[in-house]
């Protein structure tokens, strides 16, 4: 039989974190449930590192790159911690953290979490109105690009292969050659 799991609101979740009742890293709140982020292997670390360098180098103070640092309130029972969030540098985040309205792009780097990132996560980001979402697929060395959010998904989507260079819609001169993320540029 199905267990009725007790769900948490984002307020309770944050209260628990403040009370030291949760680990500081590696968890997120999805549908009111605290879920463990999948362990990150060597390819994940490499791709995330390359992506971080490229995004930061090309930002020219137009956006901030939050790598594993932004707990984003998406809704009353959803607070994921994406691998990357590009947050517009239109205001200071010194005293108030970024909200959904500040986010230009979310990127997840996915190996074992691929189905989750392309399923539940995608629906949550779209539902919250995140304008653009990328999933860097390390299993197939390609990227899934989504934009124009609707209630249950994104209206536009395409798959970019490893030989392509991709750019955020809001920052079209930022170039991410995918081969470099997959270590295929050598």
């Amino acid at each position: 039989m199905a267990l009725d799991l007790h769900g948490l609101s984002v307020e309770r979740y944050e209260q628990m974190a403040e009370a030291g009742l949760l680990p500081e890293r590696g968890i997120e709140l999805i549908d009111g449930l605290v879920v463990e982020m999948s362990p990150k292997g060597v390819r994940h670390a490499y791709a995330a590192d390359m992506l971080n360098k490229m995004l930061v180098l090309q930002s020219h103070d137009r956006y901030t790159v939050c790598a594993d640092t932004l707990s984003l309130r998406l809704g009353p029972r959803d607070e994921p911690e994406p691998d990357f969030a590009l947050v517009r540098a239109t205001r200071s985040y010194a005293r108030q953290r970024a909200t959904v309205a500040d986010v230009a792009l979310i990127i997840e780097v996915a190996d074992s979490s691929l189905r989750f990132d392309l399923g539940t996560k995608l629906r949550k980001f779209a539902g919250a109105g995140i304008p653009e979402y990328w999933v860097i697929n390390l299993k197939a060395n390609r990227a899934h690009l989504f934009c124009d959010p609707l209630a249950g998904g994104y209206r536009k989507q395409r798959i970019a292969v490893a030989t392509e260079t991709i750019s955020p819609r809001e920052y079209p001169n930022v170039a991410i050659p995918l081969a470099r993320l997959f270590g295929e540029d050598a």
């Binding site: 879920v35 189905r115 539940t120």
Partner: peptide, 19 residues
Amino acid sequence: MLEGLEPEVQLYRYTVEQF
């Protein structure tokens, strides 16, 4: 048990002390 979530998603499990 997890109606919506993908089967590979691991739920965080609490200790009695956390509870």
